[in-house]
């Protein structure tokens, strides 16, 4: 019975959201707004699942002495940030934002910047023209890289149009094919979920 209720709710709301998309009637708009608000509330609850899971994993991983310091830092951050937010709020010039701007943001930027070093190392070790296809891919990547640089003069005049051609024809046609595939796949999956054919989202046995 509980599974049937969920399936009925999914069917009704799926159909309702589909139908209201084509209507500008005030009733349809207010229903849309109300459902969107509930969507955001449900989303907030899903975050709790993530936090609980992180806690559980970190606590069990702390049994390993080598991992313990890192897990402790992770848990300290997870506990400290909400505490700061609850006491002083999350607006500008609060301790929460000070931590974000002076600890989290620089750390994230640093980790992201390290990618440049790994890409440099990988470019020497991994980007090999082992076959014709690999050589074409490597050539295209080199041209795109050069086009995102600025060497100036006649060199840029030659590289930029070639890079634009790669972006506008081979790259774009491949991407469009992927996008159309994703769109059709999403449509099919949505219909299967709304009509109750696809039931894996309910969990448990079929």
């Amino acid at each position: 019975m509980d599974r049937r209720l969920a399936l009925i709710a999914c069917f009704v709301f799926g159909l309702l959201m589909f139908a209201q998309y084509f209507s500008r009637h005030p009733l349809a708009r207010s229903v849309n707004l109300a459902i969107l608000e509930y969507w955001q509330i449900i989303f907030a609850f899903t975050l709790l699942v993530g936090v609980a899971s992180f806690f559980r994993n970190s606590l069990s991983a702390m049994r390993n002495r080598g991992e313990r310091p890192y897990r402790m830092v992770g848990l300290a951050g997870l506990i400290a940030m909400p505490v700061l937010a609850i006491i002083w709020g999350i607006r500008a010039d609060t301790p929460f934002m000070w931590m974000f701007e002076n600890v989290q943001a620089p750390m994230q930027s640093t980790v992201f910047a390290l990618l440049a070093f790994f890409v440099a190392s990988a470019s020497y070790r991994g980007f090999r023209a082992r076959s014709l296809q690999a050589a074409i891919l490597l050539g295209a990547a080199a041209i795109i890289l050069l086009s995102r640089s600025q060497l100036g003069g006649a060199f840029s005049d030659v590289v930029t149009p070639v890079a634009d051609w790669i972006r506008n024809y081979p790259s774009m046609s491949a991407r469009r094919a992927i996008l159309i595939g994703i769109g059709l796949g999403s449509l099919t999956t949505s219909l299967r979920v709304i009509l109750g054919i696809e039931r894996t989202w309910l969990g448990g046995k079929q």
């Binding site: 890409v119 020497y124 980007f127 082992r130 050069l146 640089s149 600025q150």
Partner: peptide, 23 residues
């Protein structure tokens, strides 16, 4: 930033070239 980006791109291209010559 473009100065750093252009330099690193050229460096990466040089490494790809050297790696392929060695290969």
């Amino acid at each position: 930033g473009m100065l750093a980006q252009t330099t690193s791109h050229l460096y990466v291209l040089l490494l790809i070239l050297l790696g392929n010559i060695a290969f």
